Simulated assay, not measured.
Amino acid sequence: MYGLGLDQLSLNLNNFNEKNTTLLDNKDITASNYIDEVSESKLHNAAVSISISTHNIQNYLNVKSAEFSKGNTNAQQVLSNLEVGKVDYVNFFEGRKFEKTLTLEEMGYTGKPISQLSKEEAKELLSNEGFFGSEETSKRLVKFVEDLTGNEPQALKESRQGIEDGFFEAQKLFQQELPNVSKETESKTLDIIDKKIQEMLKTDFQKELESKHLEN
């Protein structure tokens, strides 16, 4: 649902920031590249416009990532409570007791409604192979930010912050410590994203050195 975000906005943050720097730091070249003549006021207006657009995109990435992270974590919390017999939480996704969140379908879940699950079924969903277990949920979160950002480092950083914010917001919503499955999911997800960012930011020289080291 949200994976088309950057395509719809036609944005590559790296290129965008490079153009922003050129526009501000090299006015003569920028003027020849973009328009024949540009006044200082127009240049200023263009820079302001770019700044606002960049902020909007960063906010979009953060909000969508946080929303997806929070929705999955909310589901884990409901299931964790259901698993130990706290049935008061089963109405969560029907909006009777808590604020609006993503629907289960928007998270990709198409199984039995949570309100109809038994303790055993809730436990199964939270298992290693279960849809809301730490392994499958972390994969789902990583895939979400990959689709959202196009694996662009700067965009990934913003989405990473959104993922982290989502876990925090989910904890505040229930006013209790996150269950172990959510803590494990957060750790796995952020670790994978951090490694992706680190790999992308390596210089060609560093990559060449590592390649030669592996060959030897």
Rank of each mutant, 00 (worst) to 15 (best):
T101R: 02
S182M: 04
F98D: 04
F93K: 01
N91R: 13
E121G: 02
N45T: 13
L9N: 15
K112G: 05
H44Q: 12
S115Q: 14
G162W: 00
D25C: 09
F132Q: 02
A31S: 15
A46I: 12
T185A: 07
F174G: 01
K97Y: 14
Q76N: 03
L126Y: 02
G150W: 04
Q206H: 08
D36E: 12
A122V: 04
G162Y: 00
E164G: 01
G150K: 05
T189N: 03
L23I: 02
F16L: 11
E152P: 00
Q58W: 06
S32C: 06
R160Y: 03
K19N: 09
Q58G: 08
D7M: 12
K195T: 06
T21I: 13
L43W: 10
S65R: 01
K212I: 15
E124L: 11
L11P: 02
K100V: 11
S69V: 01
S118R: 05
L117G: 04
K112I: 12
T73F: 02
D28Y: 12
S182L: 03
A122L: 03
N151L: 08
S187G: 06
N91E: 15
N12R: 15
F68Y: 05
E124V: 09
N12M: 11
T137G: 03
V181W: 01
F168W: 10
K27W: 08
E210H: 13
D191I: 08
V87G: 05
E83K: 15
G71W: 02
S159E: 04
E121P: 03
D147Q: 12
T185Q: 05
Q175F: 08
A155N: 00
E18R: 13
S159C: 07
L190C: 04
Q175T: 10
K100C: 07
V84K: 15
N14L: 11
F205D: 13
Q77N: 14
G95A: 08
I193M: 00
L126P: 00
P179I: 03
G130H: 01
F144Q: 02
L214W: 12
L82R: 01
D191W: 09
I163C: 05
K202E: 07
S115V: 14
D28G: 07
E106R: 04
K100H: 12
D165V: 09
G162C: 03
L11F: 14
L201D: 07
A75H: 00
L148E: 00
K195S: 07
L125F: 05
F92Y: 08
K172I: 07
S118A: 05
E124W: 03
G150D: 06
E186K: 15
K188W: 06
G85W: 06
L4S: 12
F168S: 11
L214G: 11
S32I: 07
D88I: 10
T185C: 08
E67Q: 14
K143R: 14
A66G: 03
F132M: 06
S53V: 07
I114K: 02
S127M: 04
E199H: 09
K70C: 04
Q77S: 12
S80G: 03
G95K: 13
I57A: 10
K97G: 14
E83C: 08
L23P: 00
F68M: 04
T22H: 09
N14Y: 13
D147Y: 05
G95F: 07
E199F: 09
N12F: 11
D147N: 13
T137L: 03
A46C: 09
N62D: 13
N74R: 15
A170E: 00
T103Y: 09
E105M: 12
V181G: 00
Q206L: 10
L4Q: 10
D25K: 15
